[in-house]
């Protein structure tokens, strides 16, 4: 974008004004209240609030389940992106449209549905119970709900990259006698793995904060199946606003660092692909 264009087009001060007003009122002003609430705590009170043993247990549950969910989505998303980008078959458009269902479906609806299906006498849970697998009200249920709500991330980041990949590369590898798996590993994977990492990172970030889908299937047993978002909601219900704010500050910090890391990673990858023209 040239500096000349900046002077040619109208509306700079109007759009800057509207944007700054909106950002200040909707985003920044509420954040000042978090800082205000935190300033009522001393360092030792803050430390005590974020290292409560029950809360530490919830960190472990949340991070573990989010890792499992995003790893599942990395594999499932890669499979779906591959099938949707590479093959034509009847019903493909329906399958493609279904990938966005978890974003379109309200999280509370997903939550009660998964909890009902996977409870011990639910349609799926009753099939798994004889095998000794319990999903509802366990850690596995939390991971399932997180995986469900973050399905689209990997699919939608990898799919366009696969679609843009020229066919000649594969052809060359196969003509030279490489096996399918070997050619995939050496020719396709180097192109798509930055997108896989980005999608998995986004899926992980979303899973860490997931609330609506998780609370119904989690059972919310202290020390065992409570997630961090629930701990914040619980503190608020107890009118412990300072305690909730302390947890929220930590959650926001982690989310922002994750977001920053993903953006930096993506920036590097695009520069690499487009030779610095990004």
């Amino acid at each position: 974008m040239s500096a000349r264009a900046a002077r040619v087009l109208p509306g700079f001060s109007l759009s800057l004004g509207v944007t700054l007003l909106f950002v200040s009122l909707i985003l920044l002003l509420p954040m000042t209240s978090l800082i205000g609430q935190l300033s009522t705590l001393s360092w030792s009170q803050y430390w005590a609030a974020i290292t409560d043993p029950r809360l530490i247990a919830s960190y472990r549950v949340t991070i573990g389940a989010a890792l499992a969910a995003s790893l599942f989505n990395a594999l499932f998303g890669l499979l779906m992106a591959w099938v949707l980008a590479r093959y034509t078959f009847p019903g493909k458009r329906l399958l493609d449209a279904l990938m966005d269902l978890p974003f379109a479906l309200p999280t509370a609806v997903a939550g009660i549905t998964l909890a009902t299906l996977y409870s011990r006498n639910g349609a799926v849970g009753s099939l798994l119970a004889p095998l000794g697998i319990e999903v509802a009200y366990t850690w596995l249920g939390i991971a399932l709900a997180m995986a469900f709500t973050s399905v689209p991330f990997v699919v939608r980041t990898v799919q366009p990259v696969l679609e843009d990949l020229p066919g000649q590369a594969d052809e060359a590898a196969l003509t030279l006698g490489a096996s399918n798996l070997y050619a995939f590993r050496r020719v396709i994977l180097p192109h798509i793995w930055p997108a896989v990492v980005t999608g998995t990172g986004l899926s992980f970030a979303r899973s860490l904060g997931e609330f609506g889908a998780v609370i119904f299937i989690a059972g919310n047993m202290p020390y065992r199946t409570e997630v961090v978002s629930l701990m914040m909601a619980t503190r608020l219900e107890e009118y412990d606003y300072a305690g909730a704010a302390a947890i929220a500050s930590l959650v926001m910090l982690v989310s922002l660092l994750l977001l920053l890391a993903i953006n930096l990673w993506q920036g590097r990858f695009y520069r690499h692909l487009h030779g610095g023209r990004h």
Partner: peptide, 24 residues
């Protein structure tokens, strides 16, 4: 910076969003 700020609602838990407004 502006573009990063706009991504904040995407990144944080919805409970944090509610909490920010409740505190204010």
């Amino acid at each position: 910076l502006l573009q990063t700020l706009i991504d904040i609602p995407f990144a944080v838990s919805p409970v944090v969003a509610g909490l920010l407004y409740l505190l204010l």
